[in-house]
Amino acid sequence: MKYTTKIVVDKPIVEVTKKINSVDNMKHWQEGLISVEHISGTPGEFGAKMKLKYDFGNRKMELIETVTKNELPKKLYLTYSTKGIHNIQQNYFQSIGESQTEWISKSEFQPTTFFMRAMLFFMPNAFKKQSLKYMTNFKNFVEHGTSVNYATT
């Protein structure tokens, strides 16, 4: 399954891409994120890997994030792998004037199990909704300092 999501952040591209490329900021816009562990490579650079752990109440998830291209402030490509699914994400950033940034995210989900293939088929909007939620959380964090990590606000 492939889809594209977009959002405009009311901050300059340099500020937006600096914040999106910071591991320390992830907890403020990725709801459910409980830990980040560096595995290999230079953080933020091609080939770098991190283990991300999430807790969504009744569902826990662990993913491996790999940087596949970092040409910020214009592009950031990442892959996420977990049991049952592989996610390829291409993020593009474009200045709109001096004070706004358009973030376009192209996502491709590749199921590796029958269960995840069924989830993608029957619930594609759940994946799109989650992507847009994280983008909106990021926008709110960058523009207003609003964090989804209530322990740190």
Rank of each mutant, 00 (worst) to 15 (best):
M1Q: 11
K2F: 15
Y3E: 05
T4A: 09
T4L: 06
T5I: 12
I7V: 13
V9M: 00
D10K: 03
I13V: 04
K18D: 15
K18G: 13
S22K: 07
D24N: 13
N25V: 14
M26N: 07
K27Y: 04
W29P: 00
Q30M: 07
E31L: 08
E31N: 06
L33N: 03
L33R: 01
E37P: 15
H38T: 12
I39N: 08
I39C: 09
S40Y: 12
S40R: 11
T42H: 07
T42A: 08
G47E: 15
G57W: 09
R59E: 08
E62D: 10
L63F: 10
L63M: 08
E65I: 09
T66L: 00
T68E: 10
K69G: 09
N70S: 03
N70P: 02
L72I: 04
P73N: 01
P73W: 01
K74G: 10
K74Y: 05
K74T: 05
K75C: 08
L78M: 06
S81Q: 04
K83H: 14
N87D: 14
N87F: 15
N87H: 15
I88V: 10
I88Q: 11
Q90V: 11
N91S: 02
Y92W: 13
F93S: 00
S95C: 06
S95R: 03
S95Y: 05
G97Y: 02
T101P: 03
E102M: 15
E102W: 14
W103M: 04
I104K: 11
S105H: 02
S105L: 04
K106S: 15
K106M: 13
T112Q: 06
T113K: 04
T113W: 11
F114Y: 09
M119K: 08
M119L: 12
L120A: 08
L120R: 04
F121N: 05
M123I: 11
M123H: 11
P124E: 13
F127C: 02
F127Y: 04
Q130T: 03
L132H: 15
L132F: 14
K133G: 14
N137A: 09
F138V: 00
E143I: 11
G145T: 02
V148N: 02
A151F: 11
A151C: 13
A151W: 14
